[in-house]
Design a protein around this nucleic acid. Structure first.
Length: 493
RNA sequence: GGCAUCGUGGCCGAGUGGCUAGGCACAGCUCUGCAAAAGCUUGUACAGCGGUUCGAAUCCGCUCGAUGCCUCCA
């Protein structure tokens, strides 16, 4: 199924600041690179949002029938605390703090990262390379950049020469900055800086004797700079120019700007056709951040064990909540917003659960084909999931009306509706059906059927004391009875 | 200080030069033994001030406010 031939997808390119028609470099194929986490601590919910956004994008490309190679790296070395001379590698710092091997730090938080993303139903990327696994590639690129004259070596470290690069390239084109402005606004240089210019950035850092994470290089023992790993790994697995590069908005500058500079200095080509940036998740109106402590961890939401939220929320509800906002918009997390999403989620799932048993008729009051295209139009407009969800609720309304026999649907339309709903909710949005009720254990269903039967007998006998007791006690247990035209159903949650 | 983004009804959140997104909450009605669920109906809006236009919440300018980046961050 090559749906992409019929669907006109547009994506917002941060480089041009415009929505552009998406045309892959190689017909039918998409190469996509997303900056992964630095595994020195647990991922917080803000981190998850970015990966969830790109997971949805990955899923939609696949849904459209593209062959997608999705590369998302693990940064397990080279990410400095700061750019100054006393800059310390984040992993190494944590290892020292916890008195364990750096690779133990990496292992622990990589496992946490994978577990967390799995809970939110993220698909694994096609390739998940690590920085430490690509030291040789990084050294090769440094050599190349040195040879082309865009870098210089000082005392065992190699720095990228931004000023020289800017002579015949444009440093700052992604983030809308001008080098002259940056230089004019630079704060005082910290004491004995090796860099010729504060805007220069490290490609290779010399390892001090006490530094554990070190690799041999032509410039002595050291470790690679943070920006370089992404260039090395994206080039290796996707080529010198590839379709999509994604990441959080906060990486636009300097990280992505530096990636462009490194690639252009080395290959002479612009590395990426479409730059996509996911916006931040805020908490109390402020960006979530590991360093400031303004954050919430996925486990705290799922368990309800936190001071911010009134209750626990399932991963599917959290994902639904995120999908209700556009990936390029700032989204603020709050208890009210999550509660509203949970109710909406339950309504959507109730509809999905009853879709299969929907009675069909001779005609349809609901133009399923037109509705289906509206869903695609929403996604084609830069992955507009909030609009898609609005359309999904339109279907919910129709399904409920059909259930009440106020509207009708043909078998053919029902089949199309069912497959479209399933595709968009489960495959594209990646929202799992964690609402119980239909597909639970037989024992529970049996017990519930019995209780419903007893209650209905009591009601028939006008013994409302008994019938209300059954209903109220079940409500207290979190089980809701729903009296419909065709009898009583229940839902849990 | 520089660069960028944003300011939508009670809350969350789309969109856009003229044709009420959607979810949640609220109100009325239908259904019900009463509820719940579901459905129907309705209300509340585009930060402020100017300008462009037949017409702007949507374009332009200014003011105010918020956030992000400029130092590690998804």
């Amino acid at each position: 199924m090559q749906l992409y031939k019929d669907q006109n997808l547009k994506v917002h390119n941060s480089l041009s600041g415009k929505k552009e028609v998406f045309q892959p470099i190689n017909e039918g194929h998409v190469g996509m690179y997303v900056c992964g986490p630095t595994v020195y601590s647990n991922v917080h919910l803000g981190n998850c949002r970015t990966f969830m956004s790109f997971d949805m994008i990955f899923r939609y490309f696949k849904h459209l029938g593209y062959k997608v190679r999705y590369v998302r790296n693990i940064t397990d070395a080279g990410h400095l605390e700061n750019d100054a001379d006393d800059g310390e590698d984040k992993i190494a710092k944590k290892a020292k703090l916890e008195q364990i091997e750096p690779m133990e730090v990496v292992q622990r938080y990589t496992v946490d990262f994978h577990n967390t993303l799995q809970q939110f139903n993220l698909l694994p990327p096609s390739i998940e390379p690590t920085a430490t696994g690509h030291i040789i590639e990084q050294i090769e690129i440094i050599k190349d950049i040195l040879e082309k004259g865009f870098a210089y070596e000082v005392n065992g470290s190699v720095y990228f020469d931004v000023v020289k690069f800017n002579h015949d390239h444009e440093y700052g084109k992604l983030s809308g900055r001008k080098l002259e402005d940056m230089i004019a606004n630079t704060r005082e240089l910290t004491a004995q800086d090796e860099k010729q210019n504060p805007q220069d950035f490290a490609l290779w850092k010399k390892a001090e004797p006490q530094h554990i994470m070190r690799w041999p290089s032509p410039w002595g023992d050291g470790f690679p700079g943070w920006h370089l790993e992404c260039t090395a790994m994206s080039t290796k697995y996707l080529g010198e120019t590839f379709d999509i590069h994604g990441g959080g908005m906060d990486l636009k500058f300097p990280h992505h700007e530096c990636e462009i500079a490194q690639a252009e200095a080395s290959t002479g080509k612009s590395p990426v056709k479409y730059w996509l940036h996911a916006n931040m998740l805020t908490l109390n109106g402020k960006k979530m951040s590991k360093s400031t402590g303004n954050n919430i961890y996925p486990s705290e939401i799922i368990s309800g064990n936190n001071d911010i939220l009134s209750k626990a929320y399932s991963p599917a509800v959290v994902r639904f909540f995120m999908m209700q906002a556009h990936y390029t918009s700032i989204l603020d997390l709050s208890d009210d917003a999550l509660q509203a999403s949970e109710k909406g989620y339950n309504r959507l799932m109730d509809t999905l659960n009853c879709l299969d048993g929907l009675k069909t008729g001779k005609s349809s009051d609901f133009d399923v084909e037109a509705w289906r295209q509206k869903c695609y139009d929403a996604m084609n407009d830069d992955f507009n999931t909030p609009i898609l969800i609005a359309h999904l609720f339109d279907a919910v309304k129709h399904v409920n009306l059909i259930k009440e026999e106020k509207e009708a649907i043909t078998q053919e339309d029902k089949t199309l509706l069912l497959s479209t709903m399933n595709s968009f909710v489960y495959d594209v949005l990646g929202i799992e059906n964690q609402s119980m009720g239909q597909n639970d254990s037989n024992a529970l269903n049996g017990v519930m059927e019995l209780l419903i039967e007893l209650r209905n007998e009591a009601r028939a006998n006008k013994d409302f004391v008994t019938s209300d007791k059954i209903r109220d006690e079940l409500t207290a247990l979190g089980i809701q009875l729903k009296d419909g035209k065709d009898g009583t159903t229940f839902s849990i949650g």
